[in-house]
Amino acid sequence: MNWLLVVLGAAVGAPLRYLTDRAVQSRHDSVFPWGTFAVNVAGSLVLGLLTGAVAAGAASSHVQLLVGTGLCGALTTYSTFSYETLRLAEDGARFHAVANVAASVAAGLGAVFTGVALAEAVWV
């Protein structure tokens, strides 16, 4: 049963990542990978909210598997983030490569901490 929850979450997360990435990126005329940045930050926020909810007893381990492991695991993408950063550096856009790393780490951590804080405010 647990693996099915992960598969179902991933079946939603992967297309959501692709569609969100394309929609966001199409609105920016920049070499910066805004689409990947957006899905990674959004996934971090959702994972923070979920983690806080589970810690407060407001969400079950089944929800954690479905949303945390499945959906967020497929929505967020470290491999694409790494590839796009390498591509930027190789193409001579070193500032954008460094900015991508710094902004992604800072925003991702900020989003997960914000999610946990929001969950604690609601459920604790």
Rank of each mutant, 00 (worst) to 15 (best):
T20W: 02
D21R: 11
D21N: 14
A23V: 09
A23H: 10
A23F: 12
S26Q: 14
R27L: 13
H28Q: 14
S30T: 08
V31E: 11
F32M: 08
W34C: 11
W34K: 03
W34F: 15
N40Q: 02
N40E: 02
V41L: 04
G43L: 01
G43D: 02
S44D: 06
L45G: 07
V46T: 01
L47Q: 10
G48H: 00
L49V: 09
L49K: 05
L50D: 01
T51N: 03
G52T: 06
A53S: 02
V54L: 00
A56L: 12
G57M: 05
A58I: 03
A59C: 01
S61L: 06
S61R: 07
V63P: 00
V63S: 03
L65R: 07
L66D: 00
V67G: 06
V67E: 10
V67F: 04
T69L: 12
T69R: 09
G73I: 13
G73F: 08
L75Q: 12
L75E: 08
T76E: 14
T77V: 12
S79W: 11
T80R: 11
T80E: 06
F81V: 04
S82H: 09
S82G: 14
Y83H: 14
Y83W: 15
T85F: 13
T85Q: 13
L86F: 01
L88A: 05
A89S: 07
E90M: 06
E90N: 13
D91P: 00
F95L: 12
H96D: 15
A97G: 03
A97H: 05
V98T: 10
